[in-house]
Design a binder for these strands. Structure first.
Length: 606
RNA sequence: GCACCCGUAGCUCAAUUGGAUAGAGCGUCGGCCUCCGGAGCCGAAGGUUACAGGUUCAACUCCUGUCGGGUGUACCA
């Protein structure tokens, strides 16, 4: 089923084709049909009369009237009126809304079509450094990346998620050094994951290196660690064997966090995977004349083709991309180029998304430019950037004593607060005299985690991803406003109605009653439900998950208003009751579907 | 120095990519519980969209400049 907005555009298409002097502009004009900015103006609005008037030399309001007069008899539009400087306000026929909502209810995909021309995507997401605990810095890439994978896949695209692990860096030097000098064999045999975690922290503390400066920290111990890293990279048999021995345990450290986040990534091809390809990348770039030697290193000139000759020029120009250091070591640019080569050869993507912190914008700008020079010009590279997570003091989010916040602890706290929310709600409902069921600890734990983790994810996804955001448990778990909790609550209320009415939704859906939309609240809810396909398409097209949270927020508000005004189980007639049940069920399904696209779960009671 | 991002209500954020009277939540003020879940609903106040120009029928959005904040700037990834 085509979406509402497309159906309306199709109606105007022949009219505009006839009237427009420039046929090529018709598509642009049609794009000016959008949902009404203000519900008082109707359901949809067409803004093309002003632009077209300019082209044909007429006054916009008169031209709008002419266009309206040409609309053929149809079952879609009830009225089209001219307003202001030439807007066409469109109101849809209730009968059409009803038949659309019926079709939506019959459809497992809730009327969301798959794309006509599926593309192939590779999404680079999460990318933690293994061998150390996952921390808050990896949260956004993981959450946003996972949401994009889910959204694009739902739209019908082929999507490969790839976790580009940092599994070849200094942290292994630290582990190898620790294992050689401080290991406890019995502890390692009993629980390698725990022992490696202990060694990593021990060595870091001995070297007094923080998470940020482990690559640059000075001191004998860090020098020794870096030597172990260099030996690993040079192929030293002992260190390579240790690396191979450690890797399974390192991956095992990550697994529980991804499980809790409900994130599954298809591949985890880390830096180590590309290690062997790097010399070939450099020699190929040199052969093709894309890279040159400079100061003993190998570099690719910047976008202007410049390699700074002196400090003065270096200050003015964008830097070249270094692909082999003077000491012979390769850089992350080299690895990234090798990764592009591998991904293109293996998965042949049309689009490659890098869900990475905005601070790496310059790196990706040069990386993409260089990849295109190298022969990958037909791949659409996109840096899906996002801002930093800040604390309430607007500085990078840290623990009270200034350390990095580990994800395990963060999720623990979120679930704990989720449980507290439930208990507060339980007490207050009980106090008001509601009948509240006693739930098992198991069910309560599921509620706590669903609410807590959902709150964290939703808070991350509901803002425009490019801006920084302030991490605040109180705000993300708020029961008022645009939060996961509110959406989950709206869902639980829908489900509660079906429970209360003792209605089996599977049976109900198999024999759907007719829908009417007599009251303004019902009509508003119907129109909002029908905007679902547009919301998903927009989120997929712009890679902006917050379009989906905005949709959910509007839907939940429309539902709450409906809920207050329109009794369902106690509706005046059985037909009306059934009609409203369809709406309630659709709200629940739409919330569940969209939350699922964001990687957030729902619960039947909370 | 140069480059990129940002500046919207007291606070946290939107604004469907150039459309009508710039919208929400929190907070403030005022209503609503014999009623399907009050983790709720209805309403009010609150704005020179940092500032100054420009383009356009139309600018928070595009261009130029100024001020303020953040980030990044070849051998760490």
């Amino acid at each position: 089923m085509m979406s509402l907005v497309v159906a309306i555009r199709d109606m105007f298409e022949p009219i505009l084709a006839e009237m427009s002097p420039d046929r090529a502009k018709v598509a642009d004009y049609l794009a000016m049909v959008k949902p009404a900015a203000n519900a008082d103006h109707g359901d949809y609005q067409a803004n093309f009369a002003m632009a077209l008037a300019k082209a044909v030399g007429q006054k916009p309001p008169e031209l709008a009237k002419t266009i309206i007069a040409k609309i053929p008899a149809n079952h879609l539009i009830e009225s089209a009126t001219v307003a202001g400087p030439g807007f066409i306000n469109i109101k849809l026929k209730p009968s059409h809304l009803e038949s659309r909502i019926a079709a939506m209810a019959r459809d497992e995909r809730l009327g969301v079509p798959t794309v006509a021309k599926p593309k192939s995507f590779v999404v680079d997401l999460s990318g933690p450094n293994v061998a150390k605990p996952l921390h808050v810095g990896h949260l956004r890439s993981t959450i946003i990346g996972d949401a994009l994978v889910r959204i694009l896949r739902f739209c019908g695209h082929t999507v490969v998620g790839d976790n580009h692990l940092g599994d070849w860096g200094t942290q292994f030097g630290i582990l190898i050094y620790g294992y050689k000098h401080h290991r406890d064999d019995a502890a390692y045999a009993a629980d390698p994951v725990r022992e490696l975690a202990r060694l990593y922290i021990l060595v870091r503390n001995l070297a007094k290196a923080s998470d940020d400066d482990e690559d640059t920290a000075t001191g004998d111990i860090m020098d020794a660690c870096r030597k172990e890293t260099a030996k690993l990279h040079a192929g030293d048999p002992e260190n390579v064997a240790l690396w191979q021995k450690f890797m399974p345990a390192c991956l095992e450290m990550l697994r529980p966090i991804y499980e809790r986040l409900d994130v599954k990534i298809d591949h985890a091809l880390g830096e180590s995977f590309y290690h062997g390809m790097l010399p070939g990348v450099v020699s190929d770039l040199l052969e093709k004349g894309i890279a040159v030697e400079s100061n003993g290193a190998v570099v690719v000139p910047n976008a202007k083709g410049i390699i700074p000759k002196d400090d003065e020029q270096a200050k003015k120009e964008e830097p070249p991309a270094l692909i082999r250091k003077r000491d012979g070591a390769f850089t992350y640019t080299t690895t990234d180029l090798a990764t592009i080569k591998y991904r293109v050869e293996t998965w042949k993507p049309d689009v490659m998304l890098y869900v990475v912190d905005a601070r790496q914008a310059l790196h990706f700008k040069t990386l993409f430019a260089n990849a295109k020079r190298w022969g990958y010009a037909n791949v659409d590279f996109q840096h899906i950037q996002f801002g930093s997570i800040l604390g309430r003091d607007k500085k990078p989010y840290r623990t009270r004593d200034g350390g990095t916040v580990e994800l395990a602890a963060l999720l623990d706290e979120a679930a704990e607060l989720g449980l507290k929310k439930y208990e507060e709600s339980y007490a207050s409902r009980k106090a008001v005299g509601h009948e509240v069921p006693e739930l098992t600890d198991e069910v309560k734990r599921t509620i706590a985690e669903t609410v807590g983790y959902g709150a964290v994810k939703y808070a991350d996804l509901s803002g425009n991803r490019t801006s920084d955001y302030i991490f605040d448990y109180d705000k993300m778990l708020a029961t008022e406003g645009n939060t996961a909790t509110y959406m989950q609550y709206a869902y639980a209320r829908c489900r509660s109605i079906f429970r209360k009415g003792d209605i089996d939704e599977t049976a109900f859906r198999s024999k759907l009653p007719a829908v009417s939309n007599t009251t303004p609240q019902e009509r508003a809810l119907v129109v909002q439900l029908l905007k679902l396909p547009e919301a998903i398409e927009a989120a997929a097209a712009e890679y902006l998950p917050h379009y989906l949270t905005a949709y959910l927020w509007d839907l939940a508000k429309a539902y709450s208003t409906f809920f207050e005004a329109c009794p369902v189980l106690k509706a005046e007639t059985p037909d009306l009751r059934d009609s409203r049940l369809v709406l309630v069920d659709l709200v629940a399904r739409a919330i569940q579907l969209v939350l699922n696209l964001l990687g957030i779960r729902t619960v039947e009671r909370m």
